[in-house]
């Protein structure tokens, strides 16, 4: 299994996405582990009782069905009506500790990728993104992006945790018209990262598949502390907004719409 470690050593992560994906699945399975056996047993038993109850008529059937539902509940919700040891395999203190720590590792993905299909030709999508000054419309955590030259830009984020917002300089690496755009940060910044936008035609005339990849050299928690959003959230939100901008020319919103405040002249309860 590839290592997920990325903090501290300062090198670009080399974990391939398949490896990190598998490790995440492994973490998930591992965290449930032996404890889920009892829960499945309860759920299956509950189901069997429920079916038996439904097949019988009268109160006997009803009680069986109810009992089945209850037992299913115990399993599904992981309740412990008979004490700590009844349905969960009693965990050792070490195994309890190991679960959150493995989860913590998986919450710091070094590489985030979001993908969306936009009902448009690649040109319109590429042109919108290529003008980095547009990016604050897609990434609300950005104050502005100043385009300094054909390849350089300065990105200034909104302050999130007090003081000035973080900023960084970016240099374009590759510009493959309507297909690929890659860029990375240069110089000192609290958020060193590189990123790419890949466009490819969707099958069956469905438009353009757009893939945004962000690779931060700091943990996701640090990105979230400085920007107010995790890399995953940032990438997904950016593509959601890109799609809406390109397809409809606006962002769907419920901002500024009316709502009640639970009081008023006409207050009246139904029951």
């Amino acid at each position: 299994m590839a290592s997920n470690s990325l903090t501290g050593d300062g090198r670009w992560p080399r974990t391939d996405s398949l490896g990190s994906g598998l490790s995440r699945i492994g973490d998930r399975l591992g965290s449930g582990g032996a404890a889920t056996g009892g829960r499945w047993l309860a759920m299956m038993g509950g189901t069997a009782l429920g079916v038996m109850g439904l097949r019988r008529s009268g109160w006997g059937g009803a009680m069986l069905a109810l009992g089945g539902a209850g037992l299913f509940a115990v399993g599904a919700l992981g309740l412990r009506p008979f004490g700590e040891r009844s349905l969960h395999a009693a965990p050792t203190s070490a195994s309890w500790r190991s679960v959150p720590s493995s989860r913590r590792r998986s919450l710091t993905p070094e590489r985030t990728q979001a993908v969306v299909t936009i009902a448009s030709d690649p040109g319109a999508v590429f042109r919108f993104w290529r003008n980095f000054a547009n990016l604050p419309k897609l990434m609300p955590q950005l104050e502005r992006v100043d385009v300094l030259s054909a390849t350089e830009s300065r990105w200034i984020a909104k302050p999130f945790s007090g003081g000035e917002g973080p900023s960084w300089r970016c240099v374009l690496d590759r510009v493959d018209e309507d297909r690929l755009l890659t860029w990375h940060t240069v110089g000192e910044t609290a958020l060193p990262h590189r990123a790419s936008l890949m466009l490819s035609p969707a099958p069956g005339d469905r438009g353009t598949e757009v893939r945004l990849t962000l690779v931060y050299r700091v943990p996701a928690t640090e990105v979230a502390a400085l920007l107010g959003v995790t890399p995953e959230g940032q990438a997904e939100e950016a593509l959601r907004r890109l799609k809406q901008r390109v397809e409809t020319g606006e962002l769907s919103t419920i901002d500024r719409q009316p709502r009640g405040n639970g009081s008023g002249t006409f207050r009246e309860a139904t029951e």
């Binding site: 009640g260 006409f266 009246e268």
Partner: peptide, 8 residues
């Protein structure tokens, strides 16, 4: 089950 007519 709690609906209210309100000024908004």
């Amino acid at each position: 089950n709690d609906l209210r007519v309100e000024r908004v």
